[in-house]
Design a binder for these strands. Structure first.
Lengths: 408, 408
DNA sequence: AACGTTTGGCAAAGAGGAACACAAACTCTG
DNA sequence: CAGAGTTTGTGTTCCTCTTTGCCAAACGTT
């Protein structure tokens, strides 16, 4: 069946939508821009930009301020800036040991963020949803319901994007739980609720607001207990035919490696996951974040066993990255989660291993950097996912409002 | 710097181009279509389609024929069919042991194909170019020079797409040879000469005309001596930041494996390349295509050593495919080259290994099939690469011609 | 033969950006 | 400090392309 998205024809209405989308996206992702910069960026004329900005301004999405003269000749172009109150999203994060909610305004400003620890016990979907709603209520009071664009949710599990069904989340003890639908009911809001995997969203966040901003070909590797990632190809996240792509933690890197939870063996995850790292160093595999921090400290202190262990981890990290670099030829590799934290002590070995094991052409321009968003990456990514609803078709959001205003 | 391609604004001219492109692409890839099917496919109105078809028809790109009544009520919609003589491309293939040239018409019809064997010796760029031109001359006599759209070239090596520089082609003994530029000079034609890697083009060909037609997420694995591939993500070939992506032959699958020509060790290529296959079976590693055919025959005859060897190969093939399936979640895996030929004897084991080693969600809907284009895959892909020049912006090709006609 | 259905043909309308002329706001120069 | 040069906002008109609406043509059904 053909859905409207499959229709390849362009109409004049499509043109307007696409141009509004380009401007809104530019402002959201890169911050305030002068009108003339928007002209240069889009290739449209000043007149056209003027009309589009006028529409966005009338809808309250953007404001214009006088731009200070910058020393160049000519009339200064006013600065168009995103209005955080003009559109907002609600973002959630469901982790094994904490829940969080955030209110984020257009332009990416985090208006408020609340995080609560929770026991590492398995809780039912209904209990989690109730906790999330309780977290969100005070945030929602700060926002005009009219401006709410969508709700984004990051969850540590495999998710069917279409309806927010969590197909499998071993650490939460969930299987086929309809998180998206339940949360939509419980919040009682009239906007889409979009659920996605936390690793995917961490990568999206780094691409939008972090270490990979403005880079279009990125491999993002993250992990705590499991190892996951997100791959940006030409500026778009790799999703695959059914949305389950980028499961890089289960690349087969070591045929003689140990058993993996996924049923295979020698997966990357079994070599570089948090437990593997701690085990190699002879530490408690359930040491978690503190265990890793202690290990890094031990490495920096020069403790031999820790050094040996971290070298092994770095080598396996480099081997896996070599595969990914050969496959994707990215411009940037971003290390998140546990790898962000161990980056200072593995960076050099990872780069050397990569140089030894990847093709010269593929690795020529690649850089390896730690993420910059830390713990809040996934929830920021959830907010960005929700903002896609606005960025993809701003007209759909602002036209109805304009009509309502005209009718009143 | 901003090039015109980076300009994100849409104009009415863009709309026309995009709509013409959609129709031309549909006809080229899927063959004749009735006007009403094009209406349904594009979402445009009958009037708009009429105007667009009219323009294409005036340019000689398409023709219309009366459509036979199909039993449904209503006036029959005429069939719009691509006119092979309306636009043509020249395609070349440079292999270690043969050269080929083909003339292909709009719609994908191969008008003529000539292939000549050549010694496995290293020849200079100039010699190869001269041979290619000699092959092409009789073909070019059959085509109106006005209708030539572009020239495509498939070559077994790493290629910089921008200018057709062959950066490295070990089997040809080439390094940084400007194949694209030289061929353009020697042919003395006024159209772009586009050079690409033969594995990339083999994948493109299967995606356009072969086993992967109309599938948008595909992993294509091919190889003779080396192992390469091409990955289609959302209908687009994966190219990476500098164009060197999809070097899947150099995935690290066995860190304790043997040395690879790339400098690393335990690459997929060292486990499943043609030489590895023959070596495992205790045969001459330089046995080439005949060696493989004999091995397959031995397997079918039940010869134990051959059976053992092929099982090992199938297992390693499955291990690498599991990694690719976990990363890309494709709808289809296509085996080309040597893997196309051994598919009958490895298929079952590959599928079992894949089932054991990939994530259930990622492999859920994937099928593994042999390619259908055989030896001619790469040259067909080269033709399709050249046709992109037409498909991307038909207006640029037909408007000048229309203007010239009006001026005369 | 009459009717419903689907489609092509054509003219008029509508939407949206481009082009152009002019005014405004800045820098630079003498 | 005045005037020239430059860049940009404003407003009007024009152009391109698609849509809308009406009619006729070509098919099947009753």
């Amino acid at each position: 069946m053909l859905t409207p998205r499959d229709l390849v024809g362009q109409r004049s209405e499509t043109v307007r939508r696409s141009n509004l989308s380009a401007i809104v996206r530019e402002l959201h992702l890169r911050g305030p821009r002068s009108r003339s910069e928007l002209v240069a960026r889009t290739g449209l004329t000043r007149s056209a930009i003027r009309g589009l900005i006028g529409e966005l301004s009338a809808a309250g999405l953007v404001g214009e301020t006088r731009n200070e003269p910058d020393g160049a000749p000519g009339r200064p172009s006013p600065l168009v800036h995103p209005n955080p109150g003009g559109a907002m999203v609600l973002a959630f994060e469901v982790k094994v040991d904490s829940l969080a909610a955030a209110l984020v305004g257009f332009g990416g400003r985090v208006q408020a963020l609340r995080r609560v620890d929770r026991p590492r016990a398995h809780l039912s979907l209904d209990e989690i949803v109730a906790d999330l709603v309780a977290l969100a209520v005070p945030l929602l009071r700060r926002a005009d319901p009219e401006t709410l664009v969508a709700v984004g949710v990051a969850v540590a599990g495999i998710v069917r994007r279409a309806d927010g069904l969590v197909r499998m989340a071993p650490n939460l003890g969930w299987r086929d739980e309809p998180l998206g639908l339940r949360l939509a009911e419980a919040l009682d809001v009239d906007v889409p609720v979009l659920v996605a995997n936390e690793a995917d969203l961490g990568g999206l966040a780094e691409h939008r607001r972090g270490a990979a901003a403005r880079v279009d070909d990125v491999v993002y590797v993250t992990g705590e207990v499991g190892v996951g990632g997100s791959i940006t190809v030409g500026g778009q996240a790799l999703v695959g035919s059914a949305g389950y792509a980028a499961e890089i933690g289960h690349m087969a890197v070591n045929p003689s490696g140990s058993r993996c939870g996924c049923g295979s063996s020698g997966c990357w995850e079994t070599e570089i996951g948090e437990r593997a790292i701690l085990l190699r160093a002879g530490r408690d595999p359930h040491g978690g974040r503190e265990g890793i921090d202690e290990l890094v400290a031990a490495v920096l202190a020069g403790e031999p066993a820790a050094l040996r262990a971290i070298e092994e981890v770095a080598t396996w990290l480099g081997i896996g990255l070599a595969t990914l670099v050969n496959i994707f030829n990215p411009a940037l590799v971003v290390l998140g989660g546990v790898f962000e934290r161990i980056h200072p002590v593995v960076g050099r070995t990872v780069e050397r291993t990569l140089a030894d094991r990847s093709l010269p052409a593929a690795r020529e321009l690649v850089r390896i950097v730690p993420g910059t968003l830390g713990e809040n990456g996934p929830i920021i990514g959830a907010a960005e996912l929700a903002f896609e609803e606005l960025l993809h078709d701003p007209a759909a959001r602002i036209r109805p409002r304009a009509l309502a205003a005209a009718g009143a």
